[in-house]
Design a protein around this nucleic acid. Structure first.
Lengths: 229, 229
DNA sequence: ATTTAAAAGTGTAAAAGAAACACTTATAGA
DNA sequence: TCTATAAGTGTTTCTTTTACACTTTTAAAT
């Protein structure tokens, strides 16, 4: 006897992406203005539908790439939202993903969307459907992840100053941190490379640039190292 | 212009449940022997398909209740698994949920499944499809949750001893804990009620029984209390 | 009645980690 | 050469976590 799948309901499975960016000041999300009904003209996350021949991770990458031109971006599945009437047009389920991108280095890549815009989390507009709840959940996941995985670097340029890193953590965790304690904590992790090069833009003295040493981090991971901010 | 949903692929959306139980010794999961193809005769999580008129939480509750008779059970959505060929019979996506139940008090309720069985996590059999990976993920989520939310009590009888609680935490976290440190940590949380009653089964002296004080916990939550083991 | 055995119950000291805190240095630009 | 500005740097205090062992209670055996 074969289980009879044919009687079961099939549904549309959407993928929506919360795209986080950081401009050195504020944590931001990328939103688009919908140019189709329902909810035309309102702000929304970018999204699309899963195709039969791809898995959700692939769909998320495709959708992000198609709408923004972005490639090779950190993404993580967040949660699947399934309220019956979440999309008034049709019964859809949506699996939310969040993505972390460095705004600076991808500044010119938003080729396919005229109507996309970065918003500071604090003054982001109201979103369609259940997208506000998706963002909420993404923010709290991001807080947790940045404390336990070195993913903050995904939001920064390749080279960054200690102050930029601290500002990033302060924005994500939504709290002020002590400069000396932060610096020594980060240094104690021993997963950054301090460059000879300085960023002279922010002060007269200039401040040293760092990069994340992914190789060293992975090596330490294997030896039982636990990342913890 | 309305977005044309009709061109998009629809898929079967399954729900699979990792059911955790605790017998005072080991952390266990409830599995069933499949009596239909594919993979007939192999062990599997319980599962079913989402119906059009319900959301995933409801589906998970329905599926758990239908196959086990269990009701009013702690459940949480875990992750959505979507590998293209995860089910060889047909393209299905599966959202996994995990449930926590107290084995003792629900001992006689497994009415609808002749072939269900509790397995210690350590010597659970190999499972069909991607169910092993689901269990892995559920275990790690459970570890995290028990450290940060008072959900361990869901796995214990209404009244329990301090030692039972410690054994539970040791099983979930997979590490030995110090009795004195554990007791004072739990007492410091101040969310248990110590009963006059003793459990005389485990020793000559007998050990005091406790219950979780959900009301007090919720009141403390509102005042900013953070649960942390 | 007394002894025995077995788990329950309890506190303190040492170590580690987190938090608070302020002055010196380097350098561009005036 | 003076000035203004952010960068860079250690120590002390407090809090939290860990390590550790003896006494108490009582049922069961003698």
């Amino acid at each position: 006897m074969l289980n009879d799948y044919s009687k079961e309901d099939k549904v549309l499975l959407a993928v929506d992406c919360i795209i986080f960016g950081f401009d050195g000041e504020d944590l931001k999300i990328l939103l688009i203005k919908r140019d189709f009904e329902p909810e035309k003209g309102k702000w929304s996350l970018i999204g699309g539908f899963l195709k039969k021949e791809e898995n959700l991770d692939k769909a998320a990458i495709r959708i992000l790439n198609h709408l923004t031109g972005l490639d090779n971006i950190y993404m993580e599945q967040l949660y699947t939202f399934s309220k019956v009437d979440r999309d008034p047009a049709e019964r859809t389920i949506s699996t939310a993903y969040y993505a972390l991108i460095d705004i600076e280095s991808h500044n010119n890549e938003f080729t396919n969307v005229e109507t996309s815009k970065w918003f500071s989390l604090k003054n982001a507009p109201d979103l369609i459907f259940d997208h506000n709840r998706m963002v909420e959940r993404a923010v709290s996941r991001l807080k947790y992840r940045t404390k336990t995985k070195p993913i903050g670097f995904e939001l920064l340029p390749e080279k960054f100053t200690m102050l930029q890193l601290q500002n990033l953590y302060e924005s994500i965790l939504n709290e002020k941190l002590d400069k000396r304690n932060f610096t020594s904590k980060i240094n104690a992790l021993d997963i950054l490379i301090k460059l000879k090069e300085k960023d002279m833009g922010s002060s007269k003295k200039g401040s040293y640039l760092y990069t994340f040493d992914a190789e060293k981090y992975n090596k330490k991971l294997k030896e039982g190292f636990v990342f913890k901010i």
